[in-house]
Design a protein around this nucleic acid. Structure first.
Lengths: 230, 230
DNA sequence: CGAGTCCTTGACCCGCGTCAACGGCCGTGG
DNA sequence: CCACGGCCGTTGACGCGGGTCAAGGACTCG
């Protein structure tokens, strides 16, 4: 499958960063944290391969997956405001991360407007995504949220030119549930219902590999529910 | 009550922007929208007085309050990524807004690192706030969310040096509920329970003016619930 | 004084959380 | 080789928090 326009944009962005800044690369195994909440903020990171989850914690022990970052997404913006990170960034797949010192980035931005805009776009996109997430969680029932999650995952892969005919979820049911504001049993049931209705199909031995015959049909089930509201 | 450290920071930030950029000022009545979802993005806005809500909408008619912005907060970042706004920004009180063209801002940032950092801090803070919101909504029961909402509102006022002994909620129960992911009846019941337990008290004729004898006690009820989880 | 909006409170119900049992897949060690 | 325990996923039964529906009170603006 050829890279899409968005995929090209991501590649260009990565090029631009690599061309204008000193970066360090690092490969991470699933489970390793790039940074953790409370750590002093010094650097930003760009996902070059793999997937990361952002985990926000409260002082009393509650925790919440507040974002999933794919290739081209940035990590670490949460530290800019206070000088300390506000979440953990954990690899959920074998991943490669590029790291740039925030200081270097600021300096480079002064002479490279394109670079600055790039960063702003990344932050802006992330804010929009967070809000869409909030919208889904607050207004959709469990099944639609799971369907939306799969659709988002699939389109994230598609944008990056990766195969979407067969998808391997790199998260447990509990993690998916946490990121969607529901419990693991609810995720399991939702997936079973989606499979029964033919919107997805499990393949392979484990139950983490799925195929999505029609991505748009998945996205439509959110709308279908909303329609019954009126 | 004297301005706190944070209040000073906000004042300084406003000074810096006004000193280095052409801005336009505008006073808004409650209900007026600074921008709406879908509009072409050209400018950023800084709240100079009053309160704004951000309303995110889905294509099928669901809508969600995804943020409240007080003095010193910025509006419009959601438009940077795509060139179009992704939400409505609506005044919920008589407010004054300062507007700067994004283009001008970028130019000024090239020579004024402090200005650039200021903007980054504002974006970063907003992302952190969004995620804390998600955490609350996904992990706390209704009463604790309402308590947290009041606490946040009170501390937003306190940071800006405004009186917090008596607070006027500038939103209907429906709006509060929407922003917290619950229905207006649930908000009403939660407030009644908080009042019965002495954590808040209604004052004045309408039921929008409340006093909070102990702000920290309000914040603690979230933790109290979390403690029972273990 | 009437209409409209907002808020409160009760009664009922349902989606999802909780608890529990069970099966599959893995790595480890006898 | 199989036995074992740990983790993950599925499914059922049941209960509860909060959504839904409905009635009524308080305030505001004509």
């Amino acid at each position: 499958m050829p890279a899409t326009g968005t995929g090209d944009r991501i590649a260009e962005a990565l090029q631009l960063v690599r061309g204008t800044l000193p970066i360090t690369r690092r490969v991470c195994q699933p489970g390793t944290a790039i940074y953790e909440a409370g750590e002093v903020f010094r650097s930003l990171h760009i996902v070059h391969a793999g997937v990361f989850k952002l985990v926000t914690r409260s002082s009393d022990g509650r925790e919440q997956v507040t974002g999933l970052q794919f290739k081209g997404d940035w990590l670490g913006f949460d530290g800019v405001a206070s000088g300390r990170h506000g979440a953990d960034a954990v690899a959920i797949d074998t991943s490669e991360i590029w790291t740039v010192r925030y200081e270097d980035l600021l300096r480079a931005c002064a002479t490279q407007p394109a670079l600055m805009h790039l960063m702003h776009v990344a932050m802006s996109r992330e804010m929009t995504r967070d809000r869409d997430m909030l919208l889904s969680i607050c207004t959709l029932p469990a099944d639609a949220r799971v369907a939306g999650f799969l659709q988002q995952w699939a389109s994230a892969l598609a944008e990056r030119g990766l195969r979407t005919d067969q998808i391997t979820l790199r998260m447990t049911r509990a993690e998916i549930g946490n990121s969607l504001g529901m419990k693991l049993e609810t995720v399991s049931r939702a997936l079973s219902r989606l499979a029964r209705d033919g919107l997805i199909a499990f393949c392979g031995t484990g139950r983490r590999d799925i195929t999505i015959p029609d991505v748009d049909a998945l996205g439509a089930i959110a709308g279908r529910h909303a329609a019954t509201l009126q």
